[in-house]
Write a protein that binds this DNA or RNA. Structure first.
Length: 750
DNA sequence: TGCGACACAAAGAA
DNA sequence: CTTCTTTGTGTCGC
């Protein structure tokens, strides 16, 4: 199966450790046209196809052919019947000699245009071993098992004839393969709307070497038999609805996904080439090593320097890259597609790889195409994913939440075990503050603050309770309109409205008895190191970096990816301690203070040049605060459990950092005493207390908060911190277990 | 409801 | 081994 020419490697070379390397070495050894001779090498290709059809799998489309529809489809490809007749005969002799095509179909094809050959040849090789299970098995996102060969394309259908300048009829053959994103379940090819698929395509000309290709010019003809000069050939990926033939948009992402651009799969100007193996595509995904990329490019791109630019077959190609293989990675169906018909039956889609020609007027015309069998694209409905609740169960859970919330509102003492409930009143607290702050804020550069700090401050002021704090999800955190979207942050939806804020209480049953990753980002350049005791295996590691006290280091080098084993019923409420760490503050990066600090100014300048968001959270603020023992505005950390200074943007390691690590466990509660945290310098909130107290809702909210009888649980609502129940300590001194433990256990059972 | 946005976490790349 | 990247998919809220 493997396309592996017998070739002696340079004795200086080690044996290739992967098929990718083999292919790269092979590719380097090839010289010019030899690679494209339809001789030995490509015979192998045909051999593969012949083998592949020994066990054709059934396909619905086989039995549902509709000549009228097919005629219509062919019209769309600008079919000229006479051309097609001619070409089909050629193709049949050369390419499809071994394919099982009925004669009748062939005649129809000659008369009306190409009849898509619907006998999709399922390749009964190892690649398909995974496809025969009845239900989808969950595979890790980066697992190499995500790569699997998808449905086979049809043979090549000709739409227009191609002639060389010698008047010779050229027969193209398109190859395509789906390498990721589709599986064969219950006799159907299934893809997921949210997941990427990968497709590669290439074309060759029958009996036509690469040298011949480059030495010729080409033309096709229009309906009136006028010659149309072909400037260059290209490959294009498109999709249509199987049922009605409507065009379906595809989108391509970069590896950055949400943070990067989205675009339609581009048209790739291409010269003849052959398809790399599935294994090569698999191993070539996401490589970053420059040398590897360069070697790989030899597989995918035509090297112009190696051929004379004035060769007639090549000199009209555009200046940018010419592809030997069109590789489409990270393709998805547009999010707007309807995967159901109004009748609620499932729509199906076909993918097409078209060989197209760019004419002198810069228009593209389709010369030939290959097509997948009908594909089912599963939408985002949880029912399409294993281990998800049905909509009934979800509705029931929602109902449960509502009831829980009501019970909380009705009770002065908190006894519930709700999964999730909401404090509208705290919303109001935050909104009220927000409103005051927005009206009267003087510094437009202040763009973030944490409304939880309002709550904290309020509670601190009134002594009614102590909230260990929490943060709010980035989606809910305040970003004033006009805040720039930057490299560092995710794209933010533009809106003229103030985001609404909510504080949600949420217990995460997944936490109990599970492991958790600690994430520490950007740790560097701190002042002193103190080793803590070796971390026992069954203990909990908390990471603390109160502003004044970044001083401990772990011998275990905790870093992102460090996994903490918890006791079976342990809950991560102890991660409350993180909250103190999270109560770091930030400065407006335009503040005068910051500008006066040369070191920080340098970092800011770097960020500005790189169009990055001010790195206030990661480094500037903390550093500055430590240095000057002051700060202006509060914010929260998001997405990471711990941010520590990263003064310079180069790589760093935990060794460089001085991370405060506490080893504690559920009995070691004193470590979690909020009193151990000096928050006397937190925030400028106190300056705003007056405004805050003027807020309309204030007294109402105050009453509501007090009605909780100092047993207020306010968890963080950031997804990271959502896992941590935000507890009020000392509220239930006689309890063996913290409230959170009870919740956790009951939820887990639930 | 379906979708945009954000988040988590697990495996790959270096 | 550590650090950083990529990507399937869980989740919230509109």
């Amino acid at each position: 199966m493997k396309r592996e020419p017998q070739r002696v490697l340079d004795p200086g070379l080690r044996n290739p450790s992967s098929e990718l390397e083999t292919e790269l070495i092979t590719s380097l050894d090839f010289r010019g046209p030899e690679e494209f001779e339809l001789g030995k090498e490509n015979d192998n290709v045909y051999e593969i196809e012949n083998n592949a059809q020994n066990k054709p799998l059934p396909c619905r489309r086989d039995t549902r052919q509709d000549p009228k529809k097919i005629r219509k489809e062919s019209d769309k490809f600008n079919q000229t019947p006479a051309d097609n007749e001619l070409n089909r005969l050629n193709i049949r002799g050369k390419i499809d000699a071994t394919m099982s095509t009925s004669r009748q179909e062939s005649i129809e094809g000659q008369q009306y245009g190409p009849v898509p050959q619907r006998s999709y040849d399922e390749n009964p090789t190892q690649h398909f071993a995974d496809h025969h299970s009845k239900s989808k098995v969950k595979v890790a996102p980066r697992s190499s098992l995500q790569f699997k060969v998808g449905p086979q394309f049809t043979r090549t259908f000709l739409v227009r004839p191609i002639y060389s300048n010698g008047g010779r009829l050229i027969i193209p053959k398109i190859e395509g393969r789906i390498d990721r994103g589709f599986e064969f379940l219950n006799n159907e090819w299934i893809g997921y709307k949210r997941n990427y698929f990968t497709l590669v395509a290439a074309f060759q000309f029958e009996n036509y070497g690469f040298e011949e290709f480059t030495n010729a010019t080409y033309h096709t003809i229009d309906q009136e038999n006028n010659n149309l000069v072909i400037m260059y050939f290209a490959l294009r990926l498109t999709s249509k609805c199987t049922e009605d033939g409507t065009s379906i948009s595809l989108v391509q992402h970069t590896a950055k996904r949400d943070r990067g651009p989205q675009f339609e799969p581009p048209i790739h100007p291409a010269v003849p080439g052959s398809l790399p193996t599935h294994q090569v595509i698999k191993e070539a995904a996401n490589i970053r090593n420059v040398g590897k990329i360069q070697r790989l490019n030899k597989l995918f791109y035509h090297n112009r320097e190696e051929s004379l630019t004035m060769e007639p077959g090549l000199n009209k190609y555009p200046d940018n890259s010419i592809f030997k293989v069109a590789r489409y990675e990270r393709i998805q169906f547009a999010s707007s597609i309807n995967y159901r018909k109004p009748s609620s039956s499932t729509r199906r889609f076909n993918l097409y790889v078209e060989l197209i020609a760019c004419l002198e007027n810069n228009e593209f015309v389709t010369l030939a195409f290959i097509e997948t069998p009908p594909l089912i694209i599963r939408g985002r409905s949880p029912s399409n994913y294993p281990n998800t609740k049905t909509s009934n169960e979800q509705a029931s859970a929602r109902n449960e939440c509502k009831q829980a919330k009501k019970r909380i509102d009705d009770c002065s003492i908190y006894t519930n075990t709700a999964e999730s409930f909401q404090f509208d009143s705290i919303d109001s607290v935050a909104c009220a503050f927000m409103s005051c702050n927005t009206k009267e804020r003087e510094d437009d550069q202040i763009n973030t603050f944490n409304h939880m700090s309002c709550v904290n401050e309020y509670l601190n002021c009134t002594n009614s309770s102590r909230v260990v704090a929490g943060n709010i999800s980035s989606g809910d955190s305040m970003t004033y309109p006009g805040t720039k979207t930057t490299k560092r942050g995710r794209k933010r939806k533009e809106t003229s409205e103030q985001p609404k804020m909510k504080v949600k209480m949420k217990l995460n049953p997944k936490v109990a008895g599970k492991t958790k990753q600690i994430k520490i980002a950007h740790a560097k350049h701190m002042n002193a190191t103190v080793d803590c005791d070796e971390t026992p295996k069954d203990s909990i590691v908390n990471i603390e970096s109160p502003i004044q006290n970044l001083q401990l280091d772990s011998p275990n080098k905790v870093s992102q990816g460090t996994t903490i084993e918890s006791e079976p019923n342990y809950n991560f409420a102890n991660d409350n301690y993180f909250v103190y760490r999270n109560k770091l503050s930030m400065l407006s990066t335009d503040s005068e203070d910051l500008k006066k600090d040369p070191e920080l100014a340098a970092v800011l300048s770097y960020d500005a040049e790189e169009n990055m968001a001010p790195r206030s959270l990661e480094s500037l603020t903390l550093r500055h605060l430590i240095k000057n023992n002051q700060h202006e505005h509060q914010t929260v950390l998001k997405d990471k459990d711990c941010y520590l200074p990263d003064i310079f943007p180069n790589r760093h390691s935990a060794e460089d950092s001085r991370i405060s690590i506490f080893v504690t466990n559920s009995e070691n509660k004193e470590n979690l005493n909020p009193d151990s945290y000096d928050n006397s310098k937190e925030g400028l909130f106190m300056e705003h207390v007056d405004k805050f107290q003027k807020a309309e809702q204030f007294s109402e909210i105050q009453a509501k908060l007090e009605s909780f009888n100092n047993e207020l649980f306010i968890p963080s609502s950031s997804d990271t911190s959502r896992n941590y129940l935000i507890n009020v300590f000392n509220s239930s001194p006689n309890q063996d277990q913290s409230h959170s433990s009870i919740f956790e256990n009951e939820l887990y059972n639930f």
